[in-house]
Amino acid sequence: MAKGNPEVTLNILYRGPVERGHNWQDLFAHHLPQVKWHTWPNVKDKAEIDMLVCWIPPREYQQDYPNLKVIFSVGAGVDQLNIPSVPQHVQVVRMLDPGIQQGMTEFVQMSVLNIHRDTLAYVNMNQQSQWQQLPGVSTAKRRVGIMGLGNLGQAAAVGLQNLGFQVHGWSRNPKSVANMSCFHGNAQLQTFLQRSDILVCLLPLTDETRSILNQQTLSYLPQGASIINVGRGEHIVEQDLIDALNEQHLRYAILDVFAKEPLDTQHPFWQHPQIWVTPHVAAITQNDSAGQALLANVQRYLNNEAMAGLVNLSAGY
């Protein structure tokens, strides 16, 4: 593997799980020995730090690390970094980990199939010792809408197409995806939702997408539609979702992300018979593949090449 420019020395500060940090430190020591690896909070000279690798940065990092140039998110999302607070001269890079992509595709496929085959209803029947067969439809007649057509959204769409589902997508800005109808912007949101028997939310969290699934937009979904949220909890107005389920406008909701995590033990989502809660496990960063992705991006930086996953700070993703 290329060593990058051996004359350039970089200082990386890592903040995260210890085992992952050790793995990545060894990886960099082998492939990019000119990179000095620091583990937070053990930093002698904060002015030396060029790059920060973290999920949530240290408090007051803007002032404490005056020569910071890049923040690498260890996950696919970056909203937890509070993008408006990031200094304009600092580049932000989200994690494009094939392990995250594979995990998300698997979770979305699993969730869509569970809704498609009424698994949640049968689980509820099990608890009541109730024997009842529910009518079903073919995958070719089930329409799945993907909100968010980034790296994860497009991968999930392909995975669902491979299972035979009708898949279409929506994004804030125009996108073209092979073999899929794409909608964009507020003007086409209602049409997109009206065609979604199962809605998968994979949007980034921005001011424009916060609370995008509310009483009005949920009403656009077909009667008996279901929702899978693997974006961010703040995309959904919680009470509006509960109301849509209680009124039988929506059939199921599979929720992996929440406005406050961990989800409070008294939260109504836990006991709702039409909601399936999972603890933010749809796509977990894989140490090996994510380490390789991080290494490749640092090499690109050393070679003055564009880094993969670079975030537009103005757009927030």
Rank of each mutant, 00 (worst) to 15 (best):
V78Q: 00
T9Y: 06
R15Q: 15
R94T: 13
D256N: 01
S111Q: 12
A308G: 05
L113H: 08
R142C: 14
Y14W: 13
V137T: 14
G309C: 12
D26S: 14
N11Q: 12
L241W: 02
G16K: 04
L302F: 02
H22M: 11
L241I: 01
L203C: 08
Q101G: 03
N151P: 08
A140L: 09
I254A: 07
G224C: 09
T265M: 10
L255V: 07
H272K: 02
Y252E: 15
Q166E: 14
L68A: 06
E60L: 09
G150I: 10
Q188I: 04
P57E: 09
P98L: 03
S181F: 02
V8M: 07
V167D: 10
T39S: 14
S314A: 13
L255C: 00
L152W: 01
N173W: 09
G224F: 10
L213P: 03
G169Q: 07
L134K: 09
K69L: 08
T9H: 15
N67R: 10
Q271E: 11
C201D: 13
Q194D: 11
R195F: 02
H116F: 08
P135E: 11
E106L: 07
P41M: 05
L199E: 09
E19N: 03
G4C: 03
L68W: 02
D26N: 14
L152Q: 08
Q194C: 12
S111G: 14
G4H: 02
H280F: 08
L205P: 03
N124R: 15
H267P: 04
W37S: 06
H249K: 11
G316D: 03
T119G: 00
E7D: 15
L313V: 02
N42A: 03
Q223V: 15
V93P: 07
F192K: 03
D50L: 09
K46V: 04
Q299A: 08
I254S: 06
Q91G: 13
W40Q: 11
F28P: 05
Q109M: 15
E106C: 08
N287C: 05
N304E: 15
Q299M: 13
Q166H: 06
Y252M: 04
G145Y: 00
M180Y: 05
F192S: 02
E48A: 06
W40D: 01
P6S: 00
